[in-house]
Design a protein around this nucleic acid. Structure first.
Length: 195
DNA sequence: CGGCCGATCCACT
DNA sequence: GTGGATCGGCCGA
């Protein structure tokens, strides 16, 4: 079942990031359905979070998308070559977001192998935000699209992540964020097997 | 306008 | 573990 507006508009971005682990991220691009179970996320808590692009209420042409209502895609280019996919959460003008850092491939395996140039599905296939977008065909030009549409969306497929397998830790690559770099806003499913 | 740099990844040592 | 790839966005002049 596709996650709806009320899910994305919830106020607590940290618990929302935790709950997104185990959901299925789906894209229908180039005529191909490709999906994966989300196994790693990070919360970015808007204007008060030094690690967020919207820290201090900053608004630029790029970050304006973060101020859209929950259930919008925020995708931006990192290091000149990687598109990083985020889910905008909370209501309009509250720029919270969740970065999807890893997925476990599920549907459209052949197409994902073609996109990534890899021939083996293993734990490292899409264990990084740049790799997730590459596998799903997501590009920074998709920033701003509605996650309740038919291009990119997230399904609840009834997976319950065992609490003992859900690791909470500081976020990756945000050393610039001072004290906020220490917050445990990263959620990683340390799974043995996905049912 | 010029210059710096990033919520990364991969090949190589 | 280290360094290079690669370029849009942002900021300062």
């Amino acid at each position: 079942m596709k996650l709806d507006r009320s899910f994305y508009e919830r106020a607590d971005v940290v618990s929302l990031a935790r709950e997104l682990v185990g959901k299925e991220l789906c894209s229908f691009l180039d005529g191909q359905l490709t999906t994966g179970i989300i196994t790693e996320t990070e919360a970015y808590a808007g204007v008060t979070d030094q690690a967020s692009h919207a820290f201090g209420g900053k608004r630029t042409a790029r970050t304006e998308i973060m101020y859209a209502r929950g259930g919008t895609a925020y995708v931006y280019l990192c290091y000149g070559m990687h598109s990083l996919f985020n889910v905008v959460t909370n209501v309009k003008d509250v720029p919270h977001a969740v970065l999807i850092r890893a997925i476990h491939p599920r549907k459209g395996i052949l197409e994902m192998k073609k996109r990534t140039g890899k021939d083996q599905i293993n734990a490292t296939f899409a264990n990084g935000p740049g790799k997730v977008s590459k596998a799903l065909g997501i590009h920074f030009s998709h920033s701003g699209i509605d996650l309740l549409g038919k291009t990119i969306w997230i399904d609840d497929v009834g997976i319950k992540v065992p609490k003992a397998q859900l690791v909470e830790s500081p976020r990756i690559g945000v050393d610039y964020a001072g004290e906020d770099a220490k917050l445990h806003y990263r959620f990683l499913w340390n799974y043995q097997e996905i049912i």
